[in-house]
Amino acid sequence: MSDMKFDFDTSPSGSAFSEPSDNVHFEATKTPLRPARVVLHVFLASLGILWMVPLVISLYSSFRPFAETSRKGFLSAPESLGLANYREALDRGDFIDKYWNTALILIPSLVLTIFLASLIAFAASRYSWRFNIFFLVLFTAGNLLPQQIMVAPLFQAARRIPLPEIMSNSEKLNGSNWMIILLHVGFQMGFCTFVLSNYMKLLPKELNEAAMVDGASLWTQYWTIIMPLTRPALAALATLEFAWIYNDFFWAVIFEQRGDDRPITSALSNLGGEFVTDTNVVSAASIFVIIPVLAVYFALQKHFIAGLTLGANKG
């Protein structure tokens, strides 16, 4: 019990964000408000509001003309609100193209990473063999290395490996979505293997035994017995990996030199210059960039938190 067995049950009482269940906590629910509680609420509310300032002001300023905020400041009552900044940001930032390009990288990366990680996690955690722990160490440690240590050889290899023009504008692996997908799969697999093997390990051993007695093949055991039971962890991981791959900056900046072809987060590195004079168009651009990941987070918050706390081993 001493290691990382967080509560990754996705039932309502399971996640860190759920209402406390009855066995936890003191009598608090029905205590009258004591002065100490009031102070605590005031403190948390003020800090919480302060915490939201960068996002809320980004959103607010994105609807206001630059002329107005530059005269009156960000924290002022609005005279006029409108979507002009969004039109301008869309015009200059090509966000529709960038969303599409991001999806082309994100979806295959996500599916492949989790699928491949589930294979090795299943093989290494459901069966004991000579090197199973070695493999788990290999994947987990690999995921904790700084990406910079891999860059030189990968970059030199990718710029030499040819691809047909239909697969890559540059006719090389470097500068194509394929390379970025490959990097995500290879690198993120470490974390997913770590999480899934921890989870699969906790499923009762008898499951495989019984299936073997029934003559089920290895694949059947994996696909029809273990994978369905691993669903909560898969959901948590998929949510978390969505955010991580969406948020990737490093790989795409290094391996996609053409700013226009970059997925959205890494495209930021050349967006800055385009709107440099207008803070409110920059705000609108920021909103375009963060909307997808915030939407996924708000829709799947429970899985998101579960994913972080159940693996909880990387940044």
């Binding site: 800090l47 919480g48 509001i49 915490w51 939201m52 960068p54 996002l55 955010a243 969406y246 948020n247 990737d248 900056f249 987060t265 890494s266 930021l268 590195s269 920021s286 960039v289 963060i290 990941v293 915030l294 996924v296 987070y297 998101f304 938190i305 972080l308």
Partner: peptide, 12 residues
């Protein structure tokens, strides 16, 4: 409130 920034990339 405290958790929301965590889902953003440090680049953003």
């Amino acid at each position: 409130l405290f958790y929301t920034p965590v889902v953003l990339s440090l680049a953003v």
